[in-house]
Structure formats: structure tokens, C-alpha cells
Simulated assay, not measured.
Amino acid sequence: MTTLPASARPLTSDEIELVDVARRTIESATDAGPGEDGIHTMGAAVRATDGRIFVGVNLYHFTGGPCAELVALGSARAGGATDVTHIVAVGNHGRGPIGPCGRDRQVLFDYYPEARVILPTVDGPRSVAVQDLLPMATSWSFDDGSQMA
């Protein structure tokens, strides 16, 4: 059994709202019926430090199209948000929160190291610090390249 990191905590009302926004986003945007593959199967929502919420959906492609989380982060930046506090991705057809892939974890760690990520656990959805998703991580920046965090 996996032990949850010390930063894991039950969701706050703001985090529950973020999950609901991501769920509504993918419910309205999915192009896949139950049991079907599709191009848009994940929705994501991010909360900016000023409280605004931005959303995105994935664009599946065999070459590695963008995940919903990265689309939502791009949407936030395009909307003027320079930092985010929380992020969640939710699967279509009621699959609920789904943890970010390795690429998304690294992007979050590099650009939003103080963000919290909502993901599924055996105890239900929990909010965890992004740093806990990449133990022994190496951060990256334009100025310094890769550095042990």
C-alpha cells in the first residue's frame, strides 16, 4: 500500500469547486461516447493566485498531443495569470480526478513549485504539494539548466 505524503489533505471547498469545474468542462467538450476512444477525454482546471479559474481539455494524438493540464496552464497564462495555486484533471464519463503524467508533473514542478495537485487516493481525492509528486526531482530553468532540487 502506498503511503500518502505528509502534504496530502482532504479537499477544501475551493478545491471541490475546481474539481467540479474540470468535470463540467470535459462533460461538455468530450467527443467520445461511453466505451469509445476520443480526442478530448480529459478536462483540467487551474486556479490562479487571484482566484480566477482557467480550463482546458486534452488533444489526444499518437505523437503526444498536449494534456489537459498543459492546455489549462496555457489558458491561464493567456488570460494574464502568472502563477497558479491548484490544478486538477478529470476524466470524461465520470472517471473523476486523475493524477498528472510525468511530463505534467515536471512542468508543474519547474514553473509552479508551490502549486497543489488534486489527485485520486484510496481515501478519495486529496490535495498534495507538487514537490511530493517528484521525489529526488531535478528542477530546470533557462538560466541554470538542470539542478538537483
Results as ranks from 00 to 15, higher is better:
residue 1 M to D: 08
residue 4 L to S: 15
residue 5 P to A: 14
residue 7 S to K: 14
residue 8 A to Y: 11
residue 9 R to C: 07
residue 12 T to L: 13
residue 14 D to H: 12
residue 16 I to G: 01
residue 18 L to E: 09
residue 20 D to H: 09
residue 20 D to N: 14
residue 20 D to L: 12
residue 23 R to M: 09
residue 30 T to W: 02
residue 35 G to C: 12
residue 37 D to K: 13
residue 40 H to L: 12
residue 41 T to E: 10
residue 45 A to L: 12
residue 52 R to W: 06
residue 52 R to I: 05
residue 57 V to D: 06
residue 57 V to Q: 10
residue 58 N to F: 00
residue 59 L to V: 09
residue 59 L to Y: 08
residue 64 G to R: 05
residue 71 V to N: 07
residue 74 G to Q: 14
residue 74 G to E: 13
residue 78 A to V: 11
residue 81 A to D: 09
residue 82 T to K: 09
residue 84 V to M: 08
residue 88 V to P: 02
residue 89 A to N: 15
residue 90 V to F: 02
residue 94 G to D: 07
residue 98 I to V: 15
residue 99 G to N: 07
residue 112 Y to P: 04
residue 113 P to L: 11
residue 117 V to K: 09
residue 117 V to M: 11
residue 117 V to R: 10
residue 119 L to I: 09
residue 121 T to R: 04
residue 122 V to S: 13
residue 124 G to A: 04
residue 124 G to C: 03
residue 125 P to G: 01
residue 129 A to C: 02
residue 134 L to C: 03
residue 134 L to V: 08
residue 134 L to W: 00
residue 135 P to T: 05
residue 135 P to V: 03
residue 137 A to R: 09
residue 137 A to Q: 05
residue 138 T to G: 06
residue 143 D to Y: 02
residue 146 S to L: 15
residue 148 M to H: 11
